[in-house]
Design a protein around this nucleic acid. Structure first.
Lengths: 111, 111
DNA sequence: TCTTGCGCTTCTAAAACAGAAGCGCAAGAG
DNA sequence: CTCTTGCGCTTCTGTTTTAGAAGCGCAAGA
């Protein structure tokens, strides 16, 4: 398994660990943005298998790895009842993704 | 080589090709966001080897693949002088990434 | 001519991912 | 109690993706 990118520490593509580079490394991993997205859509905490189904049955091994990374990054957290939800920081991330969604709609309509 | 995700066509993680899913697939590939980012930072068109250096000497084979994908997606385009730059759509994408950068700074300052 | 740098391509090894199987646990049915 | 069902994951093996070095053809300059 790889390492969870953290701001301030060297990450793939940046020896300095500049925040934006660490973020691009973390969020650039496959399924990461999607998992965050689905956790947010759920509203209430979502269980592992349920989350897996919502992500089009993505591989459980990868989901497990992504959740561990997101937890370490302080973006997602397990509840006491064995389910997952976003932290306030995670909610902010989703908010920050808003313009990206608008862009994707514009992208879909290009000639 | 893989396929370039397009809105409206099935992509990894979504049989419907919903725009946001296609975008998450395309942008979720390793180095993609970084390449877009560096093309934008350059301002003027950037040559292949120069771009590679700016991306911390990422693999040339992957850079080549990413540029092909970004071109197909209408995000980047080669100039007549054998250099690369963002299209207007690509510039919009960078703009849409703005809040994400702000978020990364906040992320860097968490306890 | 000879070197230097360019935009890539090609090749092989390493890493990441996919997907099925299964483990231990807990709750309910019989 | 035993049996089944579903849960949260982990483990394992095969496939895909990425890394990284090497090299090709071209063009410009010494």
């Amino acid at each position: 398994m790889g390492t969870t990118p953290r701001p301030g520490r060297p990450v793939r593509g940046s020896g300095t660990g500049r925040p934006v580079m660490a973020a691009l490394d973390l969020l650039g991993r496959r399924w990461t943005l999607r998992v965050v997205w689905e956790l947010h859509r759920g509203g209430t905490p979502v269980g592992f298998r349920d989350l897996q189904r919502r992500c089009d049955a993505m591989s459980s091994s990868v989901l497990s790895a992504r959740l561990a990374e997101l937890r370490e990054a302080g973006i997602a957290a397990p509840t006491d009842a064995a389910a997952w939800r976003l932290t306030p920081l995670g909610d902010d991330l989703v908010t920050a993704m808003g313009p990206l969604l608008d862009w994707s709609r514009a992208w879909a309509e290009r000639p």
